[in-house]
């Protein structure tokens, strides 16, 4: 009896979660595969003509291959900001965890404040403009680094706490300087948390729409998220292309997830619970 109700409960959970969580994605795929007339009926049905590949080709051609430029921009932004963010966060997290004193507690406070307080938009534009970085890729990279840094620092310092201090003391006794200790001893040990940071932050930066909206405007700077808005205003009746675009820009995060599923899950949990 017990195992019987157990299976029933499992099947119900399976059915409900599939409907609630997967139907919207199935809808995206189906609509992206339809002809324009077919798609505009918003039906949840198998496409009359299956034209997914033609639609994707069409999406690429829109507005002089704007999506190719957008993919290049988004990739540049994601790769550089995540690389810088991870190294800076690891350095900060390491020293903040190991040292005590006025500066380290100030740094800790700063990180916590930045984690909680949302950034002020126009004053940030003002600072970027003063630095000559407004509407520049470099400026946007620095914004993304600053945005992701607090979470990563907390993650790193929680992880450094689990590395015995004797390890860096031994390396220092062997004559290694602080940089060497950090890059040769500590950073390799941080590998699990580095993987988590890379995956979680890559998804966050790649999916960020608000940041580029404010700090990186302009046609030539378009990121992949912005291309969706181009579709909405320009080609109102071409729902099939809009959904093909959604499908296209969901692929990179999905691939990352498929490869690093376990690390994302563990890392998010560790960071959230310990931090």
């Amino acid at each position: 009896m017990r195992s019987h109700s157990h299976i029933v409960r499992g099947l119900v959970a399976l059915a409900v979660s599939t409907i609630v969580f997967l139907v919207p994605f199935a809808f995206i795929v189906l609509t992206a595969s339809k002809t324009s007339a077919d798609a505009s009926r918003f039906e949840f049905s198998w496409p009359g003509d299956f034209v997914l590949l033609q639609n994707i080709a069409e999406v690429f051609k829109v507005r002089d291959f704007v999506i190719v430029r957008a993919f290049i921009n988004s990739t540049t932004l994601t790769v550089s900001s995540v690389a810088v963010m991870v190294v800076l966060a690891a350095m900060m997290g390491y020293v903040v965890q190991r040292r005590t004193g006025l500066f380290t507690s100030a740094a800790r406070m700063l990180v916590l404040a930045a984690l909680i307080v949302p950034s002020a938009v126009v004053p940030t534009i003002w600072v970027l403009q003063a630095l000559g970085l407004y509407k520049q890729m470099l400026g946007m990279i620095l914004i993304e680094v600053t945005g992701g840094l607090p979470f990563c620092v907390l993650l790193c310092s929680a992880f450094v706490a689990t590395i015995p201090r004797e390890l860096d003391e031994a390396a220092a006794l062997d004559g290694a300087g602080p940089l060497r200790v950090f890059f040769r001893v500590i950073l390799p040990l941080l590998k699990p948390v580095v993987v988590t940071m890379v995956v979680v932050q890559s998804v966050a930066v790649f999916n960020d729409f608000t940041g580029p909206l404010y700090f990186l405007p302009g046609e030539e700077n378009a990121t992949v998220q912005a291309t969706l808005f181009n579709f909405q205003s320009q080609t109102l009746s071409q729902w099939n292309l809009l959904f093909a675009d959604i499908l296209l820009i969901t692929v990179p995060p999905l691939v990352l997830y498929l490869f690093f599923n376990r690390q994302i899950v563990e890392g998010m949990v560790n960071g959230a619970v310990k931090g």
Partner: peptide, 30 residues
């Protein structure tokens, strides 16, 4: 002193500098 040199404060500088520049300054001036 040995602890200090093993965990140098300048490790905090690049990240902390960015936070000051792009978080503290905009927040304070806002």
């Amino acid at each position: 002193r040995s602890t200090r040199s093993r965990y140098p404060l300048w490790f905090l500088l690049p990240g902390g500098g960015l936070l000051v520049l792009l978080f503290v300054v905009p927040t304070a001036t806002s």
